[in-house]
Simulated scan of single mutants.
Amino acid sequence: MIRVLVADDEPMVRTGVRAILSTAPDIDVVAEAARCDEAVRQARTHLPHVAVLDIRMPGGDGIEAAAEIRRTVPGTAVVMLTTFGQDDYILRALGDGGATGFLIKSGEPEELIAGVRAVAGGAAYLSPKVAARVVAHLASGAGAAASRRAAARGRLDTLTTREREVLIHLAAGLSNRQIGRRLDLAEGTVKAHVSSILTRLGVGNRAAAAVTAHEAGLGQP
């Protein structure tokens, strides 16, 4: 059973997220919070597998709360809930917050369940709208777009053929186990490839690697 903490300062959003997650037989919402500091306390108390956090809440900074949860409860993965117009926060969450999942509040319910399951399994999950938004923000301006895409492709050129195959599936939100099944590789081998990919791309987590893949236009499997 995947234990989940839901943190959002809007009661209706928390209720909606809980209701959606309750439809999944393998997910159990064990705690809720309306503030950043409360979310950190609840995570320490309940030790959830996944914390679903609003990217902006009172009582602190949502990204700092994510980072604190990742630091003090390393077994808890973080999914950030975002709205359009919060691109800078998303970029900060990728780097400083250690989040591995990003979802749009107005997205489909199935995305929320898929995102929680993905990060609980050790994968990264980017809502397609979030990925497109981040890439568009990073590449704002024609010249900047070409430059960033060229830079991303240049970083991908440092990967081996197998690592590129692994990255394609990683960017699609698959866990190491799922990637191993697709490519007929041992899970430990996939883990080693992912570690190498992060090092070669110069990124700190799977979500950031997925953004680089999307930015470079790497095809989906």
Rank of each mutant, 00 (worst) to 15 (best):
A31W: 03
A34S: 15
A34E: 14
D37K: 07
D37C: 09
V40K: 01
V40M: 02
R41M: 14
A43D: 06
T45P: 04
T45M: 14
H46V: 09
P48K: 06
P48V: 08
H49S: 12
V52L: 09
R56S: 05
M57F: 07
M57V: 10
G60N: 05
G62E: 00
G62Q: 01
G62D: 00
I63A: 00
I63T: 01
A65M: 09
A65G: 07
A65N: 07
E68F: 01
R70C: 12
R71S: 13
R71K: 13
L81P: 02
T82K: 01
T82S: 15
D87G: 05
D87Y: 08
I90F: 12
I90S: 14
L91E: 13
R92C: 03
R92W: 01
R92M: 03
A93I: 12
D96A: 15
T100H: 03
I104K: 13
I104A: 13
K105S: 09
S106W: 03
S106R: 09
S106E: 15
G107Y: 04
E108F: 01
P109Q: 09
P109M: 10
P109L: 09
P109S: 09
P109T: 10
E110H: 13
E110R: 14
E110Y: 08
E110K: 15
E111F: 13
E111H: 14
L112G: 08
I113H: 04
I113D: 03
G115S: 13
R117F: 05
V119Y: 01
G121S: 00
G121M: 00
G121D: 01
A124Q: 03
S127E: 11
S127K: 04
P128D: 01
P128L: 02
K129Y: 12
K129F: 11
V130S: 08
A131D: 06
R133I: 11
R133H: 08
V135P: 06
A139K: 12
G141L: 02
G141Y: 01
A142P: 07
A142C: 05
G143W: 12
S147E: 14
S147R: 14
R149G: 05
R149E: 15
A152I: 11
R153G: 12
R155K: 11
D157M: 03
T158H: 14
L159C: 08
L159A: 07
T160F: 00
T160L: 03
